Simulated assay, not measured.
Amino acid sequence: MGNSIVDFIIMTKPRVWVFLLITGIAGEVFALSILRSLNVIGFFYVALYIALGLMGAESVSNYFDLSIDRKMKRTMNRALPSGRMKPGVALYGGSILIIATLILAAFRSLWSLVFMATGIFDYTIIYSLISKKRTSWNIILGAYSGGAPLLAGFYAFTSSYNIVAILMFLTIFIWTPLHIWSLSIKYKDDYAAASVPMLPVRRTTKQSMRVLFPIAVLAVLVTVLTGYEFRDYFSSYVGILVFAVYLLLGISLLVSYLRALADPERRIMKLFVSTNIFIGIFFVFIAIFSLLIPFIGV
């Protein structure tokens, strides 16, 4: 029983959903900070259903990806493709978590429910079931799901339009193909063996890196714009610091891309790691600066 629970949790890809949960928490912290609200119970309630929804979506996605995972060296030893877990456990267990998420979200906020529901649908149906094995642009179609937890967290506490929240969402949306395609370049043979038409499978490494150029530039621009808009919540000197942090963060991402472009065979995984570090720092500072708003914000 213990091993089954551990296998189920591992099957939900904690490294993926914990990161997405952090973005949702960052959205919560930002919303509560600008509202000057200390809603601790609400905070943990929303974090709980975001986590359950992410776990459920990953579980159902793994069920749909089973035929792929059995063929890829990188994934064939996971619980489902290796046979340690029955496919029905992933499908029904994940579905139960998703239903629980939607019920909990419905009691909190209509907008939070909408973003959780559409995010789960995009990831499990649009990306995993429909587009993953049909088009090289699958990750573009699935990128919305990466930003949905952030919006679910933010709009669990407010229904007002907020440019910073939208820019945070766009950062994740644009960052996603840069992150996934850099990994796909490294494992393009693995994806090809499983008949998954990721961009680097259909195009040469050089062509794929060129496609990543406008994406990297867009990611930098949205990052800098996020810092520019976020600074308005602070006094002049602190606002300048906030802007500087996101300016430097955007520049560092662009430098990482340009280095990988010059030598993709040696540096592509360094770009992949850099995208992880970039998005982690991005949202850690969102949370830190947000926590300062009630004390030194304008």
Rank of each mutant, 00 (worst) to 15 (best):
Y155W: 03
S112Y: 13
I22T: 15
T204V: 05
S67K: 02
W137Y: 12
S195T: 12
M209W: 06
M72V: 08
F283P: 12
I215M: 12
L113C: 04
D122H: 08
I180W: 09
R36S: 08
N162H: 04
L52S: 00
A244F: 11
I120D: 00
T226S: 07
F107V: 09
S4M: 11
I268T: 13
V16K: 02
S195L: 11
I98C: 05
I288F: 14
I139D: 07
S274C: 06
A57C: 11
L21W: 08
Q207Y: 01
I240W: 15
F44A: 11
V242A: 04
V242E: 13
S109R: 10
H179R: 08
I34M: 06
L20W: 02
T204R: 13
M116D: 03
E229H: 11
F230K: 08
A262F: 13
V164G: 02
F295Q: 01
V238M: 05
F243Q: 03
S208L: 04
L102G: 14
A51G: 02
K132E: 07
F115Y: 03
P177Y: 06
A57P: 00
E58S: 06
A152Y: 04
T223Y: 05
F283E: 10
L102F: 11
I25G: 03
I185W: 07
G27V: 09
M85R: 04
Y161E: 06
A193D: 07
N276R: 15
A193P: 12
F107Q: 07
V245G: 10
V238H: 14
M11V: 06
A287F: 04
S195G: 10
A152T: 00
I277R: 07
L21K: 06
L170T: 00
Y63I: 09
I288H: 14
L212S: 05
L35I: 02
R210N: 13
F64D: 13
I120R: 00
S95A: 14
F43I: 07
V273D: 15
L271T: 05
S290Q: 10
T124M: 06
P264N: 03
F234S: 04
K270A: 07
S274T: 08
A143P: 14
R267P: 15
V29D: 08
A26S: 07
W137Q: 00
S33W: 02
A193H: 02
I9K: 08
T135M: 03
S159N: 15
F230L: 00
Y161I: 12
F121P: 08
A156N: 03
I172T: 07
L170G: 10
F154W: 10
I172C: 05
S236V: 06
A47E: 07
S131G: 15
W17R: 02
S136E: 15
L212Q: 11
D69S: 03
S4W: 13
R108M: 08
V16L: 09
S136W: 09
S131C: 11
T171E: 01
T124R: 13
L91M: 08
L150V: 01
T226L: 01
P294M: 04
L178P: 02
Y144Q: 15
S95L: 13
A219H: 14
G146Q: 05
V114P: 05
T176V: 08
A287N: 06
L248Y: 12
S236H: 15
S274A: 10
L167G: 00
L52R: 03
I174D: 02
V164W: 13
E28V: 09
